[in-house]
C-alpha cells in the first residue's frame, strides 16, 4: 500500500499531466452528503456531510473546490477538495437546484427551482450579481464552450431559454417536450441537447437558428414508453457520441451524434439521472436514485464495470482530475 502510494506519488511528480488519479463526487439528496470515490480503484474514500438536500454540483475552474447546491439551505456550499471541508457559502437565491460555472470560472449560474429565476453568482466576491427571470421550475443549466450562451430549461413551462451571457438576458425560447431537465452543449457550441423527462425525448437545438433540428426518441423492447425518462446528457470531447440517462428505464442510451441513431442501451441501476466522464474519457459514472448506487461504465467496451453503493437518493455526479 505504502509502496504503491509512493510509486504513484513519484509518477505524479515525474509526469503531473499524465496522472491517472481522479475522483468522483456524488451528492445524495436524502442523506445530505457528498460521497468521495476513488475513480480508479472505485472505492469510497470518504463521505462528507453537507447542508440539507444537496443536488446539483459543479467543480471550480481550478478543480480545487466543489460548488454544492444545498437546496433546502437556500445557498451554495463551497467544499474544499483538499481538506474536504465546507469553507464558505455563496448566495444563490431560494431553492438552488442545478448550477453551471461560466467559462471564465468567475460566475456561477444557478437555477432556483422555487422562484422561476436563474441567479448569477460571483464566486470571487461571493455575491449575487443579478437574477434572470425564466419559466416555471427552472432546472437544466448548460453553458456553451465558446462562452456565449447559457441555456436554462424550465420544467413546467417546457422551454429551453437561451440567455445571452454577455447581457444576462433571455433572447430566445424554444418549446420542447414535457418536463425538460438537462441542457448540454456539443463541444463545438453549435448544438444544445435538451432532455424531456416526461415527454421521453431529447431535442437537438441548433444554436445559430434556435430551432429544433431533431427530436430523438427512445425505444427499448418490452419496456413501456412511459418508463423511458431522459434526464442526464453527456457528450464526448470529440463530439461523436452522446450518452443519455433514461431514469426509471435503468438504461443509458448511447447516441451517434451524426445520425442521431441510438447505438446501444446500457443497463445500469434504477432511476439513473446524472452522468459524468472520467478526465481521460475512459469511464463514465452514473447516479442511480432508486438503487442508491453509482454505475461505472467502461467507455471502450461500453459495458458496466462496477456498481458502487453511495448515499440515499444519489443525485449529481462530477469527476475531478
Amino acid at each position: 500500500m505504502l509502496q504503491r502510494t509512493s510509486a504513484l506519488l513519484g509518477l505524479c511528480l515525474l509526469a503531473p499531466l499524465g496522472a491517472q488519479a481522479y475522483t468522483a463526487y456524488v451528492s445524495s439528496e436524502k442523506d445530505n452528503t457528498i460521497t468521495v470515490v476513488d475513480g480508479e480503484r472505485l472505492e469510497i474514500k470518504k463521505t462528507v456531510e453537507v447542508g440539507a438536500r444537496p443536488r446539483g454540483i459543479a467543480l471550480s475552474k481550478d478543480n480545487r473546490a466543489l460548488y454544492v447546491c444545498t437546496s433546502d439551505e437556500d445557498h451554495i456550499e463551497v467544499l474544499d477538495l483538499a481538506s474536504l471541508e465546507v469553507t464558505h457559502n455563496l448566495p444563490s437565491g431560494p431553492d438552488p437546484e442545478l448550477l453551471v460555472l461560466g467559462p471564465q470560472g468567475r460566475f456561477l449560474y444557478v437555477a432556483n427551482e422555487d422562484d422561476n429565476m436563474v441567479t448569477v453568482v460571483d464566486v470571487e466576491d461571493r455575491s449575487k450579481v443579478t437574477e434572470i427571470q425564466v419559466g416555471v421550475e427552472p432546472e437544466g443549466m448548460g453553458v456553451s464552450p465558446d462562452g456565449k450562451w447559457l441555456v436554462n430549461t424550465s420544467e413546467t413551462t417546457n422551454m429551453a431559454h437561451f440567455i445571452d451571457i454577455a447581457k444576462h438576458e433571455v433572447v430566445a425560447n424554444v418549446l420542447v417536450d414535457q418536463r425538460p431537465r438537462v441542457a448540454q452543449f456539443t463541444p463545438d457550441s453549435q448544438q444544445v441537447w435538451v432532455s424531456s423527462e416526461i415527454g421521453g425525448t431529447v431535442s437537438v437545438i441548433d444554436v445559430a437558428t434556435k430551432e429544433k433540428i431533431k427530436v430523438i426518441e427512445f425505444a427499448i423492447p418490452g419496456m413501456r414508453r412511459e418508463l423511458i425518462q431522459p434526464v442526464g446528457i453527456r457528450i464526448t470531447d470529440d463530439g461523436s457520441r452522446a450518452f443519455v440517462a433514461l431514469g426509471p428505464a435503468a438504461r443509458v442510451a448511447v447516441v451517434d451524434t451524426k445520425t442521431f441513431a441510438v447505438e446501444k442501451y446500457l443497463l445500469v441501476g434504477q432511476r439513473v439521472w446524472n452522468l459524468d466522464f472520467s478526465p481521460d474519457q475512459s469511464r463514465m459514472f452514473t447516479t442511480n436514485g432508486v438503487s442508491n448506487d453509482m454505475s461505472v461504465i467502461d467507455m471502450e467496451k461500453l459495458k458496466v464495470l462496477k456498481t458502487i453503493p453511495v448515499g440515499r437518493l444519489p443525485w449529481g455526479v462530477v469527476v475531478a482530475p
Binding site: N116, V171, A172
Partner: peptide
C-alpha cells in the same frame, strides 16, 4: 428584468412587451 410579484394573476404588461421585443425563436 424584475420578477413579477407572486400571486399576480396577470403579468405586468411592460414585462410582456419587453420580452416580446426580444423574442425571435419561439
Amino acid at each position: 428584468v424584475k420578477p413579477s410579484p407572486r400571486g399576480a394573476v396577470a403579468p405586468l404588461p411592460t414585462l410582456v412587451l419587453a420580452t416580446l421585443l426580444s423574442l425571435s425563436a419561439l
